[in-house]
Computed example of a mutant assay.
Amino acid sequence: MDFETLKESLTLKHVLELLEHYRSFGMLPGVIVTLLESFFPILPMFVLVMANAAAFGFWQGMMISWIGACLGSILVFLLARKVGQKQFFKFLSRYQKVNQLVNWVERHGFGPLFLLFCFPFTPSAIINVVAGLSRISRQQFILAVLFGKMVMIFVISFIGYDLEALAKQPLRTVIVVVIIFLLWYAGKKVEARFSLTEKASKEDS
């Protein structure tokens, strides 16, 4: 089975059937399918999150998807940092655009990563690897993942769980926008606290 055939088979109906087949394992299959998307970006995150919401209910499905997606991103980040960083920097001079992308992530930190993780169609696998190859702190990356993936998964679950209600109640869309802003603001506050802590530690040492 080639990648295109696999991708075409990963419809909402087929994923729901898969989750139902392994229902005896509880929420583990739902966590695994969203975790694997970080390693295999061909997997449709939008469909996987919607399937979890439909199979487990809105809140439980959302939490299952969030746990799996965050674990997957953090694992890829740590693997890229541990295995690839030393070899990668040997080739920076040959790939100037990649060098610029890594430097951009290092300079801007939490903000752009958070926004990228908010959108379900961004290549999160590439973002995870680039962040791992950069010198961005683990705290900043993990914060961006936790808050950004929360927004993304909440929105997909919210939309996919009841499309008809969303169309009939535009106020719900406004609520989504407000929640995105609040989560972004909270993430920046937490990041500032980490920065102050790191600065104080350096001054003490």
Rank of each mutant, 00 (worst) to 15 (best):
A55Q: 08
F56D: 01
F56E: 03
G57W: 13
G57V: 09
F58K: 07
W59G: 04
W59I: 03
W59V: 04
Q60D: 13
G61F: 05
G61A: 03
M62L: 15
M62P: 02
M62C: 11
M63Q: 12
M63V: 15
I64H: 03
I64R: 02
I64Y: 07
S65W: 12
W66R: 07
I67F: 13
G68E: 13
G68F: 09
A69L: 11
A69E: 06
L71V: 13
L71N: 04
L71H: 04
G72A: 11
S73L: 11
S73R: 04
I74K: 06
L75D: 13
V76A: 10
V76L: 14
L78A: 11
L79W: 00
L79E: 00
A80H: 05
K82W: 12
V83T: 08
G84T: 15
G84N: 14
Q85H: 15
K86Q: 15
Q87M: 09
F88Y: 14
F91T: 12
F91Y: 14
F91L: 12
F91A: 04
L92I: 08
L92E: 10
L92F: 03
S93L: 08
S93I: 02
Q96W: 10
K97W: 13
K97N: 13
V98T: 05
N99F: 06
Q100N: 07
Q100D: 07
L101E: 09
L101M: 15
V102L: 08
V102W: 00
N103I: 06
N103A: 12
W104S: 10
V105F: 05
V105Q: 02
R107M: 05
H108Y: 14
H108I: 06
F110L: 15
F110W: 09
P112V: 09
P112I: 01
P112L: 01
L115A: 13
L116Q: 03
F117C: 13
F119H: 06
F119T: 04
P120C: 06
T122F: 14
P123L: 12
S124H: 05
S124E: 01
I126T: 15
I126N: 04
I127H: 01
I127S: 03
N128S: 13
V130W: 01
V130E: 07
A131N: 04
A131D: 04
G132Q: 02
G132V: 05
G132W: 05
G132I: 08
S134E: 14
R135Y: 13
I136Y: 04
I136E: 02
R138P: 02
Q139H: 12
Q139M: 12
Q140F: 01
F141C: 10
F141M: 06
F141V: 07
I142L: 09
L143T: 01
L143E: 02
V145D: 01
V145K: 00
L146N: 07
F147K: 09
G148Q: 14
K149F: 08
K149N: 07
M150S: 12
M150Y: 00
V151P: 06
V151Q: 00
V151S: 14
M152W: 02
I153C: 06
I153A: 01
F154T: 06
F154H: 11
F154G: 00
F154D: 01
F154A: 09
V155P: 01
I156K: 00
I156G: 00
F158Q: 06
F158A: 10
I159S: 05
I159M: 15
G160A: 07
L163V: 15
E164I: 05
A165C: 08
L166V: 13
L166T: 04
L166K: 00
L166P: 08
L166D: 02
A167W: 15
A167Y: 13
